[in-house]
Design a protein around this nucleic acid. Structure first.
Lengths: 220, 220
DNA sequence: GACCGCCTCCCCCGTGCGGGGGAGGCCGGT
DNA sequence: ACCGGCCTCCCCCGCACGGGGGAGGCGGTC
């Protein structure tokens, strides 16, 4: 019997692309589509797909929350393949930590996309970007989410630091961040320094650039 | 006879999506695909499509250069529809100035995509994002590239200022920009101040954020 | 209990940054 | 010949920023 797939992405064009690529395979069947995370749970209950290919960044309910919800509420949950635009997408790592089984770059070639779906359907975890695979190899770790977690360790920002970076990336000054977080400016300066050090950035501008380039914050 | 379309995008997934959406129409036919701008000219010569739907951001030869090349070298060039991810993409306006006939957001609904292809095929120019249409309305301008040019006027950065902004967005300090451009740091400060004023930014970080959010610089 | 990571706040200090001016040279349009 | 826009460079000045330290409280783990 074929592998059944549910597509979840807010952009119809991406859904159409995935459908076209996957339907071309005789052993893969796209059984449904959803435009946001909120619609996923009932659909999964009804359609019982083998694999859910889901965007991380979506309105209403994002891929991370949807992943958590799926694993929490559905008995025998489907395999979850997280779809993303960027390598080193902080959201993706969060999704993997939330229990997703693998991820997929939108710019991947059709053959890779098909391969990814087949792999997770067979119960293999997979981490697509070369950077992560390299890490997995370095750690003599035959796949699984450990590698992804390791990537997070790299620039292991604490929760507070990540919060500060997000505010930096919205253009706030140290004083404004301090007001927002209801702490002293000296505290903010400490966090900012930590962020700069961990990201290897010389100043806040470079840190914000890194935030954008890595997908830590979404443009547009 | 059907409208013939050539798809040009470096991501196979996007091509597959566009193909799926367009092929669903009886009066539209996708006659070919290309992965970058360099391959476009020979393909257009051979296939003579009515419309070329082309990404702006591509390796080797981007959509702007490809547009110029097409209009320069091909007699009776096809209509050119520029495909983009962001509204307010500086590249898109450049493409339109280079002679493209309209543009298309990737996150548009299938019906809008189909509509856009039909429109340009009929010889209409179209500027999809609401912001640009609003501008066109304000100026009592029934479409055409004037509206897009007007958007550029808004934050009318001089060439030098745009150059400085691009370097700012790469994390360079004033001194580094000065060295790169072989001018004094005082000069750079002047340009930076002008950029901040024109963008309504308080500091360089906010300017860089604006650059990313507007698509003036590409993430990733 | 000892240890560690995180968050919080404090000091000093240098400097890059940005505001507000002004000014000269060059070029293109009228 | 004149004006306007652009690029270039200059002055003064205040301050936010970031580096380098340190330190206390708090919650976990061993």
């Amino acid at each position: 019997m074929p592998v059944t797939v549910l597509l979840v992405d807010d952009e119809p064009l991406v859904r159409a692309g995935l459908r076209a690529v996957l339907e071309a395979q005789p052993d893969i069947e796209v059984v449904g589509e959803a435009a946001d995370g909120a619609a996923v749970i009932p659909l999964v209950r009804r359609l019982r797909p083998d694999v859910v290919a889901m965007d991380v960044r979506m309105p209403l309910l994002d891929g991370i929350e949807a992943t958590r919800a799926l694993l929490r509420t559905v008995g025998e949950p489907p395999k979850i393949l997280v779809v993303t635009t960027f390598e080193n997408d902080e959201y993706v790592y969060e999704a993997l930590r939330a229990g997703a089984d693998g991820f997929l770059l939108k710019r991947a070639r059709p053959a890779e996309i098909v391969h990814a779906v087949r792999l997770v359907a067979e119960g293999e975890s997979l981490l697509f970007p070369a950077s992560v695979r390299r890490l997995a190899a370095e750690h003599g770790d035959g796949g699984g989410n450990r590698a992804a977690r390791d990537v997070l360790e790299r620039a292991r920002l604490t929760e507070r630091e990540a919060e500060v970076l997000r505010l930096m990336a919205r253009g706030l000054s140290n004083a404004e961040i301090a007001a927002r977080l209801v702490v002293g400016t000296e505290t903010v300066k400490s966090h900012v320094s930590a962020v700069l050090a961990k990201l290897g950035a010389r100043d806040r501008t470079q840190a914000v650039i890194t935030a954008y380039e890595s997908g830590f914050v979404a443009p547009g």
